[in-house]
Design a protein around this nucleic acid. Sequence first.
DNA 1: CAGCGGCCTGACGTTAGGTGAGAGTCAAGA
DNA 2: TCTTGACTCTCACCTAACGTCAGGCCGCTG
Lengths: 259, 259
Amino acid sequence: MKNVKLKVNQVAELTGVSVRTLHHYDAIGLLSPERTEDSNYRLYGEMDLYRLQQILLYREFDMPLIQIKELLDAPDYDRIEELLKHRNQLEERKSRLNTLLNTIDKTISHLQHKTRMKTPKELYEGFPAELGTTYRKEAIKRFGKTEVEQSEQQLMNRGKDGVQALVDKLASVHRKLKNVEELRPNHEVVQEYIHEHHQLILAFWGTTENRWEAYAGLANTYVTDTRFNLTGEGYDKPFAEFLREAIAVYIKDKTANNP
Amino acid sequence: MKNVKLKVNQVAELTGVSVRTLHHYDAIGLLSPERTEDSNYRLYGEMDLYRLQQILLYREFDMPLIQIKELLDAPDYDRIEELLKHRNQLEERKSRLNTLLNTIDKTISHLQHKTRMKTPKELYEGFPAELGTTYRKEAIKRFGKTEVEQSEQQLMNRGKDGVQALVDKLASVHRKLKNVEELRPNHEVVQEYIHEHHQLILAFWGTTENRWEAYAGLANTYVTDTRFNLTGEGYDKPFAEFLREAIAVYIKDKTANNP
DNA sequence: CAGCGGCCTGACGTTAGGTGAGAGTCAAGA
DNA sequence: TCTTGACTCTCACCTAACGTCAGGCCGCTG
């Protein structure tokens, strides 16, 4: 007969529970092993380990520890009764969960109907000019109708608020860029913002594929097309040129790293 | 436009939440209504009530309040995402519950097989020796086969659980008696335990009729038959003699009072 | 003006441990 | 032999979502 006597850490590693948990079980009298004479260390014997196994089993059932304690101190026939009771509770929880899942589905669907839109026309309302209907025509020429319509569908799936979020974020990035207009176009911070800008443009295009030529073309349009109102204060040529430079740096950097 | 302004108790009755809950939601900044100028009472307006409705909806989904707070302060499209995440969590919980139900069923079935019995043979397995098969033969000689079989049927009608309960209780009484072995056999406490013992033995005999001679015979057998293992630690003659004396006192006392 | 009900804040308890802090213990290396 | 690091102990505060007092303020009514 092996006289196993394990200390807390050994038990913890053996069973996967934390030392604190063992302390706790001792504190509430659920599992109180003997102690060493002098140092007062906890020593777990075979019986203790068996009891711990039982505890972990019942704990798996989401049973409160106090109830587990009663259960383990009761004979088998009482345990069956308790387990049956507990089983019923679990069954109730399950049916409640099913109800919850249904309700949550309804809620989601409701929210989607509230925010989903149906036509591309609706989509382009409130769009930034550089990505509006004019761009759409050019895009169809360049990428083909099918792909453009796919992008539009992608965007519409974001829901009205989702698209608005993109629009807002783009405006925000423009503002941030305007604030660092005095820096070199290849400045770290500027390039960081340009990266954000690029990601947003890609989102508008409904793609994650890097269309460097298109992006460069967009940068160019900022300068040549006076209709653009990036900062909300009219056409700003110096800023547009700053942007074009910064974007050029960004593209050169990216295509150099991932040719 | 009606300018509803409700106090905590009115809101509580209207919505079914407790006043304390409203205080709590205020404390964590989830729902902070305006206050009256002088008395600092909380006043809930229409918007507050609507927000409370939302809170209760999401709370139904077992969503932590902190998360509900973020959700309600976020636009619709973010909500959908959060709800979808949360839906997944619920789905995981559900599948975990199913696993739990299976495991608990196995455990119950295991315990039942451990304790269930079908035949008198099985009945006597795990029986205390003084009431086991040997006793049965003697009992038939003394009381007749019919009556013994009736007793057995009685016992089996208690169900597997019930019989095990009796066995356990008898063992428990033995232990309690062992603990007071040092007292006089006519000590109040000892006699109280002997009374419990007597009741249990009568239950095993499937009768409520006082068979004093049989009980005295049993007490005698404790001493003479070395197979008996009352304390779970082998034959214990001094303890058996203590028991015989105590039972003798008990019988004398009872027959004196109810001749 | 006293009393009563409603309201307030503050504080402690609940579960099943997590996360230290401060101190004692043990075995091994310098 | 002393020191160091790993391990252990207890004490005690923290979590979520409130329940449950306790002590004190407010307003309305007899």
